[in-house]
Nucleic acid binder design. Sequence first.
RNA 1: GCCCGGGUGGUGGAACGGUAGACACGGAGGCCUCAAAAGCCUUUGCUCUUAUGGGCGUGCGGGUUCAAAUCCCGCCCCGGGCACCA
Length: 779
Amino acid sequence: MYPYPSGPAHQGHVRNYTFGDLIVRHKKMLGYNVLSPIGFDSFGLPAENAAIKTGIHPRIFTDERIAELKKSLISIGAVYDWRREIKSHDPDYIRWNQVIFLAFLKAGIAYKNKAPVNWCPGCQTVLANEQVTSEGTCERSGDVVVKRNLDQWFFRITDYAEELLGDLENLDWPERVKTMQRNWIGRSEGAEFDLQVKDHPGLTLKVFSTRPDTMFGMTFAVMAPEHPLVDILTVPEQRQEVDALLEQVASESEIERQSTEGTSRKRGAFTGSYVINPFTSLEVPLYIADYVLMTYGTGAIMAVPAEDQRDWDFATAYNLPIIRTVAPPQDFQGEAYSGDGPKINSAWLNGLNIAESKIAALDWLEENKVGTRKVNYRLRDWLVSRQRFWGCPIPVIYCDKCGIVPVPEEDLPVLAPDDVEFLPTGESPLKANNEFMDTICPTCQKPAKRESDTMDTFVDSSWYFLRFCDPWYEQGPINPLEAQQWMPVDQYIGGIEHAILHLLYARFYTKALSDLGFTSPEIREPFKRLFTQGMIRLGGTKMSKSKGNLVDPAGYIETVGADALRLFHLFVGPPADDVDWTDQTNEVIEGCSRFLSRLWRLGVGDFNRANFESRSKAETDLETEKATHRLIKKVSQDYDRWSYNTAVASLMEHVNLLYKYAQEGALQSIFDQGVDAVILLAAPMVPHVTAELWQRRHDQDVHLQRWPSFDPELARQTRVTLVAQINAKLRDRFEVDADISDQEAINIVMSSSKIQNILGDKQPKRIIAKAPKLVNIVI
RNA sequence: GCCCGGGUGGUGGAACGGUAGACACGGAGGCCUCAAAAGCCUUUGCUCUUAUGGGCGUGCGGGUUCAAAUCCCGCCCCGGGCACCA
C-alpha cells in the first residue's frame, strides 16, 4: 500500500515491505514480468500540524520525510521501479486528481450539500463517517467528534452500494475484511410505505421496515427529532413537551445521544397526532424519539414492541400496548421476540412463518399501492472536503452570478500558494490568502472566489495504483491500455486498519472511473488478492509513531543487518498474525542472524570438513540428494501458501543437515547442490547475503536465477516411519519402504515382539492399516 | 446483542482426521580456550519409576470415529469489527 511518509520506516513498514519484496523477487525467479511500483501518500495533517508548530512549510517537511522513508526502504533491500514513483503533492498528480474530481462533478458523482457532518476539533476539519470510530471519536486524533451543519462536498458512493457489496463475493480477500465491508455497507431489505395521518387528509408519514409482516403488532409510530413533519404534526397541547425533548437532543453530543448505556433508556414525546395502521385501519399514537435516526431509512418507523427490543423498551417506558404477532417458543425468556414462529393476532397472516408472511405483507402493500419493496443501506455518501491546507485543492470557483463553476481543465492544476500563514483557525489557511482566493469566473469573467477546501487524502490514495500503470501518461490521469495490461493488482498487501477506509474508497473509485471511461469497462475492482499482515505490538498496544513506542529498525540494520531483520519478520509466525515485540525478540533476531552466519560459512566453505574428497556414492549421499529435492518441493509449496515461517524452518533444517553431512564425509557435488538450493530458495527472503554468496560461488546474480526445480522421483520419500498402535495408542514404530502394501504393514507390525507381548492371547477385533504410515489394532 | 478471528511446552510457533510439540528462543550439561567471546555437540512438555517402561497432556464439557489439536454440539476466556440502522 501507498505509505504515508512519516519519516524513517518502522517495524510495520519493514514487515509489510518484506512480504511485498519477497513476492516480487520470488515471482521474478519464476519468470513473471513483475510491476512493483511505490509512491508516497504525501498530503496529510502531520505535515500541516508541524507547520503550525514550527513554521516550516509542509512541502519542505514532507520532502524530508519522504527522503528518510525512501532511504530506509532501500536499506531493507526492497526493489522498486523508482521511475514510476508517485507523490500525492506532485503538481502532476494534483492535476489529474482535479481532472477526476471535475469528471465526478460533471457526472453528478461529486456534489455539494448542507448537512450535519462530523467535525473534529483536534484536526480542525470535517471527517467522513468512515473516519469516526464507533466511540464517536476521530480515528486520527482521538478527539470527540461533534456534529455541525455545514455545506460540504460529497462523493455519491451510495450509488455503488449494491455493486460494492455484490462484488466482494469474487474477491480473494480475507473473510474478515469482506465481512467488515459488508457490515459497513449494511444492506437491509424491507418495505417503504405510507402511514395516513389522522385529521390531516392527504398527509402521509413514510416509514421503512424490514418486518412488514409484523404490521398487526404496530401499536405506535415514531419520528426522529429532526424529521421535517415534527412541527406540523405536533398539536398545541403537546408543543411544550416536544420542544423540551428537541432542546435536550440538540444540546447533546452524538456520543451522549447514542451512548451504549442508554440503549434501554428511550426518550420521547407524544406529538398528539395519530397515524392509521394500513392493515387494520386502526389509529395508533405518533411519538418523537431520539432512538430513531433521521439519517437512516425515512427517519420514521412503525413501532412493533413485541418483535423489536427497542420498541419494547419504549413501549414499557411510555405504557404503550404490546401485541405479539409471532408466537415465541414455550421456553422463551426474553422480552421482544425476533425469531421465527407461527404468526398470531395477524388476521390473514395467521399460521404462516416469517418468510411467508413477509412476502404476503409486501404483496399486499404493493397491490394496495400503500408502499413498495425497498432496499436500504447503512453506507452514507463520502464526505471529501477538508478545511485544511496540505491537501489537493478542490478545483471549483464560486461566482455570485453563475454559482459553482468548475475550473477549466487547461487551467489545472490549481495549486496552493506558498506564502500562507499556518494558524489553527478551523479554516484552511488558503481562505485568508486573497491572492489565491480572488479570481475571475471562467464563465462570466466577473470577480469570483475560489474554493478554499482541499480533498480528503483518501482521495489521493483511491486511484494511485491506476496511475502507476503509466505515470508518464499525458492525455489523462490513466492510460487505459496500460491499465488494461496491469490491472487489477494481483497482490495487494497492507494493514487491517484500512479494511473499510482505503479499501472501500479505492473500490468505489475503480468502479466510478470505469463508468466514466477512464479505464475499460471490465476493470471493476482494484485488488484481486488482498493480504492483511498482522500488526506489531509492544506492551499490548499497536507499535506506532503516535503511541511513541517504536522500536527503530535502523539499529538492527546496522548491527545484524537487514537480512536478519527480514528473516525475523518471516520466521516469527504466520504473516497474518500479530507480532508481540517482547524481551525475547532481540534473542530471536540474534538467532536469525546466527542462521545466516551458518549459511554463510556453509557457502564459503568455512567449516569442519572431515572427508571432502570424491568417493563412491554412499547411502548418505543419496539421502542428502533426496533431502535437497524434498526441500525444494516443500519450500516452493510454502511460498505458494504464504507459509514463510515453515519455509524458513525447512531451510534451517537443511542447513543443519548439510553440516552433519559435511562432517560425516560428503560428496562435493551433492553438497554443493544442497547449498545452492538453500541459497536460491532463501534469495527472496534474504537478498543481500544470498547475492554475495552466489556471486562468490558462481560469479552471477542470484536474483536473475530461475527458481530451482525438483525431480519428483527424488523428492519422493522412500523410507518412512510405520507406526503401530493398539487401540489408537502408540506402541511401536518401524522404518519401512514407502511403497509397502497394507498387508505387508500388518505383517511387519504383527511380527513385533513388543506388539505380541501387549496382545497376549487377545484376538484383534479389527485391524486398520493405512500403509505405509500406520497400523491400528483394535482389541 | 450480532458478526469475524483465536486459545497447543517456560516463549514464538509446527502439525489441520493417522508418531502432538517441526524449527527457533530460553534453560541445563559438555567440547574448544590460559580465560572469555564466537563456534560446535548433547539434552529439554508434565509426571510416576532405580531403570526397562508406564500414565497424563492442544481452554472446559459432551459427541462422531478404529483414531480428534484437527470434524459436530454446548459453554468459558482473549482479540477485532459493527451496534438504538427500524
